[in-house]
Design a protein around this nucleic acid. Structure first.
Length: 417
RNA sequence: GGAGAGAUGGCCGAGUGGUCGAAGGCGCUCGCCUGCUAAGCGAGUAGGGGGUUAUUAGCCUCCUCGAGGGUUCAAAUCCCUCUCUCUCCGCCA
């Protein structure tokens, strides 16, 4: 949610943002609706104040005088109820639209509406040397470390078993990332993966991406698609004192995604699955420092990927391809020789005050409390990272050499057929 | 899953229908005092919305005493529903 005062004082900023995102929202209607809400609320409050005032007097009255005063107050009470209901109705109409208004877009975010419009910022590593092009599904079967057939048997499409050394590689990657980031001052976390609706609204996944989230209706809980949700909600309704920020967390969690609307996309192997593990960075920071922090998170992501010796590129995500909370987003796309393509393995967003406002995360300052900024970034999306390692480090015989940086964690140097 | 207890401001803790957004204490902030980071004295100290104003002051007002709903002229106080926490039992990684 963005600052209401922007709607009142600079509605053009919002118009510009929704234009860049390709979203259709009637901002002028919102502006006048907001004015209606305030006018109606004002009316109700004035009546209410009058009613309270007359109510107080009643305590000191007796007999007929008291009776008359009670009747007068009752009339005011009735009037207040009507005016209040009118204001509530307007408020509801406003909220229904307002909740869908996405964050403002950073001026430096790329233009365009799909991932085809993403702008490449840099490219690292040489893809020409990756000239063996078995894809991860083939390698997974060959090495007996990925089993999608039985995944389908047990759980359906887009599920798989990780098996053997791939499992050890998974935990090596997790620990590798956790070590890099705890060294950098992040606090490690294992958050809940089942959360209440509030956490998903607060982080902006509801209502925007509701169809991507698994629900457990019986218990009114939802399975998170990323640790970003419980990490962000960790400080929900809290007010930080001066000097407490930034707060940097790195959380490990399993992630669940319905992948609605992706039928037919990435069906081979386990590139796109309903369940995977991820190590995620999440930062609460002062507003003035969020841009700088965004660059810092991207730098951490790059250093982690660089240690894996996988070619990659960094893209500035197009405005129209940003999620509702993000003002700007960088993706790292790793080279997948089997697909002959760069594919997303990390994502790093500056959500500015959008989530913090919804979650009511604030900071106490000399001139009052203010909403802070939050950012999130993938440290390691374990599943896809394993796949890019398999594909990039495959040998002619199908074996896979483990990158140097991971060997202390895996305890082995290669995976053999 | 069964039985019971509880939820009040940063913390502790009063408060069972009427100047209670809330006594008191602690903590904190500012000032005073004290010859020495003790004691003492005074003042201040929740969050959010709206209005006004010069939009970082001030003033007015509404909402919030776990959440939501209800009764009433009036609710922290009465009623209903829900959530959470704690204790005991059961079950269990």
């Amino acid at each position: 949610m963005i600052d209401l005062s922007i709607l009142r004082n600079q509605p053009d900023l919002i118009k510009d943002a929704i234009r860049r995102r390709g979203v259709d929202i009637d901002v002028d209607a919102l502006v006048s609706l907001d004015a209606d809400v305030r006018r109606a609320r004002q009316n109700a409050e004035e009546t209410r104040a009058e009613q309270k005032e007359s109510g107080k007097a009643i305590a000191g009255l007796q007999g007929d005088e008291k009776q008359a005063a009670i009747e007068a107050a009752a009339a005011l009470s009735e009037q207040f109820k009507e005016q209040s209901a009118a204001a509530d109705a307007l408020q509801q109409r406003f909220d229904a639209i307002w909740i869908d208004v996405p964050n403002l877009v950073d001026p430096s975010a790329a233009d365009g509406f799909t991932d085809a419009d993403n702008v490449e910022i840099k490219r690292v590593g040489d893809i020409v040397t990756r000239n063996i092009t078995r894809d991860h599904a083939e390698l997974g079967a060959l090495l007996d470390v990925i089993d999608t057939e039985r995944g389908a048997k047990v759980s359906g499409a887009r599920f798989g078993y990780l098996k053997g050394k791939a499992v050890l590689l998974e935990f090596a990657l997790v620990r590798y990332a956790l070590d890099r980031l705890t060294e950098a001052g992040f606090t490690p976390m294992v958050p809940p993966v089942l959360v209440k609706e509030d956490a998903l609204f607060g982080t902006g996944f509801f209502p925007d991406a509701r169809e991507q989230v698994y629900a457990v209706p019986e218990d009114e809980l939802f399975l998170v698609g990323t640790a970003e949700v419980p990490l962000a909600a960790y400080h929900m309704d809290e007010i930080f004192e001066a000097g407490e920020l930034p707060k940097r967390y790195v959380g490990f969690s399993t992630c669940f995604r319905r992948e609605a609307g992706t039928y037919g996309k990435d069906t081979a192997g386990i590139f796109r699955v309903h369940q995977f593990d991820k190590v995620e960075m999440f930062v609460f920071t002062e507003p003035e420092l969020s841009v700088e922090e965004h660059d810092r998170l991207l730098a951490y992501e790059e250093s982690i990927v660089r240690g894996l010796d996988v070619p990659y590129r960094v893209v500035n995500v197009a405005a129209g391809d940003l999620g509702a909370p993000a003002a700007k987003k960088y993706d790292i796309e790793a080279w997948f020789p089997g697909q002959q393509a760069y594919r997303e393995i990390t994502s790093c967003s500056n959500t500015t005050d959008f989530q913090a406002r919804r979650l009511k995360v604030r900071q106490r300052t000399e001139s009052g409390n203010r909403v802070i900024h939050t950012l999130n970034g993938t440290a390691v999306a374990v599943g896809r990272t394993i796949l890019t390692i398999l594909e990039n480090h495959q040998q002619p015989d199908g074996s896979v050499v483990i990158p140097e940086a991971l060997r202390p964690y895996t305890g082995f140097e290669s995976i053999e057929p």
